[in-house]
Structures are given as structure tokens and as C-alpha cells.
Amino acid sequence: MNAVEPAAGAGPIETDVVIIGAGPCGLFAVFELGLLDLKCHVVDILGKPGGQCSELYPEKPIYDVPALPIVTGQELTDRLLEQIKPFNPVFHFGERIDALAREPDGRFIMTTDDAKQFRAKVVVIAAGGGSFTPKRPPLDGIEAYEGTSVFYSVRRMEDFRGKDVLVVGGGDSALDWTLNLQPLARSLTLLHRRDDFRGAPHSVNEMRRLVDEGKVRLMIGQMTGLDGDAGTLQTVTVKTAGGEEKIVIDAMLPFFGLTMKLGPIADWGINLNENLIPVDTEKFETSEKGIFAIGDINTYPGKLKLILSGFHEAALMAQAAQKIVYPDKKVVFQYTTSSSSLQKKLGVK
């Protein structure tokens, strides 16, 4: 980890704690830290809170959360949000912390992919299985074309003007970009493995209309190979019911959903064990003082990837985090059932 000079200008957002990940453990960490007067900002790559619970299985019942015999991923998320409301956490959705460095005074400065900066005394990594990132089609050599001819998102539509564009997939992303880029592109081909689309019905209808008008070419098939030169894609081989066909394109946009990757955390100088972060079981601190890891992303002897274990880890982590933020404060352990000061913080007194 490199020490950096404090940023000039408008300056970063100052807070006690930055929590990376708004899954159940990240949300509950807001509660435990809040009880100890620590203010939190929460950053998540997804567009909404809940992490895997709301992204992967919002409707799936969970049966092992204490005192809730059955709760869905979405309900659990909603209840946690209600529980942490008194602490007014600030959420930053759709952003990923790309860089983290320690300043000379021991605080951390973090920068998101959107160039937003945070300065905090404590960092809590509650990133679960890592950050959700677009799935890369397992085609040989695809990495060489990423960012030049292969794009997993559209930053600037203008970049596709006058290009021969191939959109691959059958969900809303594929349909939306087919509809949005068709007017700009020289040609637009939509490739999907079956003639059945998961997207919103009006998008499907609109796409079918463009196909009927000859403005979009719809191909039913799957990619099997790529050919190009020096980072520039030239042809994509597509297997259809009628055999293999090579189509000539300038840009390819594959939309095959999301997977979880550790991402930039790997570059922050924290000791890792494969894709997990080893922590102690007293404070759940990483190899770097002031950086904690809770929930599915950490590992220690006996670790269980359970939501309830992550809650426990959040509580112990908060005690250690308080000592960093308020080193001189005498800590008196209190219960929410009887402590007037905790009840005041919770807004129930």
C-alpha cells in the first residue's frame, strides 16, 4: 500500500467508516457501528442494497436467520434497512472502490470508478463473493479485444456511430442496447441462442418491429470463435441451426449476466488466501490495521459462510473500529434493552 498526499480541491467525503458492500453483513455493520457513534458510508457496485440476497435470490426463503423461521432475501434486506435507518447511512450505489491507499496520518483515502473520493479512519470490506462483474464469454482470445472491440457496457453511445455492431444475449440489456444503438450503428445484429427473449415485452416488440423493417438482423445461434488483428475484432463465428457463419463486425456487446470477482481489492496490499481475506477472530481485522473484513469474503479457522456468522463478525469488528476512531473513549458495554443512551440513538426513547 502506498502512502499518498491528501487530495486537493473539493476534497473527499469525510467519514468514520467506509463499508464496501451493501449485502446483509454490510448493512448490519452500519447498525453495530452506529450504536458506537461511528458514521458510515456504504459503497456497492449494484444499483440497490441487499447484495446476493436481492441480486441472486430475492424470492428464495432463508431458514437460518435467528428468530426469523422463514424470510426471503428481499425481506431480510428490507428489515435490515429499517433497522439501520436511525443511523442515516449514506449509500453510493453503482460504484466500485477501485483504489485504496493509506495517508501519512493512518487514515485511508479511497477512489471509486466514478472518481468519487472518501477519507475514513476505518474500512470494512463486506464484499461477499466479490463485486458483481459482467460475465466474459469463454471464447479463446477475447481478453485481447476487451475495451477496443468487445464491450460489457456502453459508456458513450457515440462510440458506436457508423459501426457494424453485434449485440449478444436475450435479456433487457441486450434488447435495450439493440434499440438504443440501432439508429447510430451502420448495421446492428442481435444474436441470441433461441427465438425467445426474457426482456420486457415492449422491448421485444420494438426489436421485432425493427427486424421486420430490415433495420436489425436477428440471428439465432451461439458464438464459437473470434478472429481479429492487434486488438481489433474482425469476425465472430456463429453456430446456427444452418451451420457456421462468420460475421464481420467492428464491435461486440455480450450480455450474459453477472458473476462475482474479487476485483480491485486484490491490489490493496491486504494478505489474501485465494480469493478470501484472512482475518483474526477477535476483531475481524485484515493484515492491514484499520481494514476489517466481515461476511463471506473473510476466512479464519472454522469459518462458516452464514449470514448469522457475518452479523456476529460485524458486532466484534465494531468494537475494534470504535477504538480506532475514538482511541481515548472509555468503552462501556451496553445492551439495547436497557441502555438509555443506545435507545436514544435508535430513536426509541
Binding site: 464469454p137 469463454p138 444475449g169 435479456g171 433461441r194 426474457r198 451461439q222 450474459f256
Partner: peptide, 11 residues
Amino acid sequence: EEDMLDFAFDV
């Protein structure tokens, strides 16, 4: 499951 198979390779 068909919808989810859209996210698989070489279906």
C-alpha cells in the same frame, strides 16, 4: 431454467 440457460455457454 431456460431463461437461466441463456447465461450458459454452448447450450
